[in-house]
Design a binder for these strands. Structure first.
Lengths: 212, 212
DNA sequence: CGTGGGTTTGACTATACTCAACTACGGTGG
DNA sequence: CCACCGTAGTTGAGTATAGTCAAACCCACG
């Protein structure tokens, strides 16, 4: 990972804290910097002419974004929640790419983005919405320290964000969450917290134990 | 584009001709080389446990594929039709990435793949199947010399390939083609040839004209 | 404490999937 | 060269799934 590469410490960079819903850069705008997420969550998205939004990827702490040597951004980047970033100005990109010691790491960073998009793309084609949602939650749990039994997943984005990521209507997302909970696969602790039930626990479909 | 970079001429490479339906490399296998398509068409695909296939991208002449410095392929690569490739062995990858003159071009190649996947991903979320298919055909026409009025698009892949790329059942693809033809948007000349009607010129040209 | 955006729920509709039968094409062998 | 066969593609009927429109609801925020 680029994070572990010492070369990054020597290129110019600084911290940047943003509130939720702030645009970092817009679609098709000229790249001026790239970023690493330190805290929070950034969504990479495009907005169609019909006004509908498609989220291509979520960037969590440790992820890089905006690494596009081309002359225009392929997607806009906005914070899903309050987020802290490290900014690397464009000049650093050129220096990185030309430094023989750094270039392989840079390529690796680009390939991570490829893997991320490819993983997202492969889920789109087939499978039910429930599968997609479970896959998304498991990915989140994995990023938050492994998907152990009864892992509590923090959702650093709104339902609408998740729906636009999965490519479904937010009503459908809401209904799907309810269905998964009814089947005992997940449990909605709060609006931004979901408990993943282990597969082994599926055998005993726990009905809502907590009395009102 | 990497194609235009002279450094590629100096790294070891050779030609390879393959018949249709041949696997170039398999999913999760260790990368031994990367490739440039000279003629034909390659599909990058993953196969789910349910046997269903999702095609992530089609690689047409000029495109690179298999550029993954990681330790395993993110997707399998197979020829959709008889295809001619230039093979660059793994040793060339390391050399390219470490050569200060080549590294930017290498990064650019990776970014092209990112753009390709991102473009595919953004169409998935919203819009009708007809839109997706028209977008696909226009992309093909664009790659085959611009989408002028009445452009004849050669389809270098089967209907099943197209369906798996768009993430729809092949029956749905067949019906959608029929519907588009009935609406006068396209005309099926033969099984592997479709004429794009000038009505589609209403939409914005994705082709870049001369700089202002 | 009130407001407003995000979220949930309901009823209805549109769209694409599935299963199944049928047809056309391309390649092969007589 | 033609007949045959197998694969790819098309068409049809019925069904399942998610979208749309609309309204209620619930927090989080000021």
């Amino acid at each position: 990972m680029l994070t572990d590469h010492p070369a990054l410490d020597y290129v110019k960079h600084w911290r940047l804290a943003l509130p939720r819903g702030r645009m970092i850069y817009d679609e098709a705008e000229a790249p001026k910097a790239f970023y690493r997420v330190e805290r929070g969550c950034v969504r990479l998205q495009t907005t169609g002419m019909d006004g509908r939004r498609q989220i291509l990827a979520f960037c969590l702490p440790g992820d890089f974004l905006g690494f596009e040597p081309g002359r225009s951004r392929m997607a806009a980047a906005e914070t899903s929640i309050a987020t802290e970033l490290t900014v690397f100005p464009w000049s650093a990109i050129a220096r990185l790419a030309e430094d023989p010691r750094c270039a392989p790491a840079v390529v690796a960073a680009a390939c991570e983005m490829i893997s991320s998009l490819a993983a997202h793309l492969r889920t789109f084609g087939h499978g039910s919405v429930e599968d997609h949602l479970m896959g998304f939650l498991e990915w989140l749990a994995d990023r938050q320290g492994g998907l152990s039994a009864g892992a509590v997943v923090q959702l650093p984005m709104s339902r609408r964000d998740i729906a636009d990521f999965l490519g479904i209507a937010n009503e459908t997302l809401s209904r799907t969450i309810g269905r998964l909970e009814a089947r005992g696969l997940i449990q909605v602790a709060s609006r931004r917290e979901i408990v993943l039930h282990p597969i082994s626990m599926r055998s005993q479909p726990s009905r809502r134990a907590a009395a009102p």
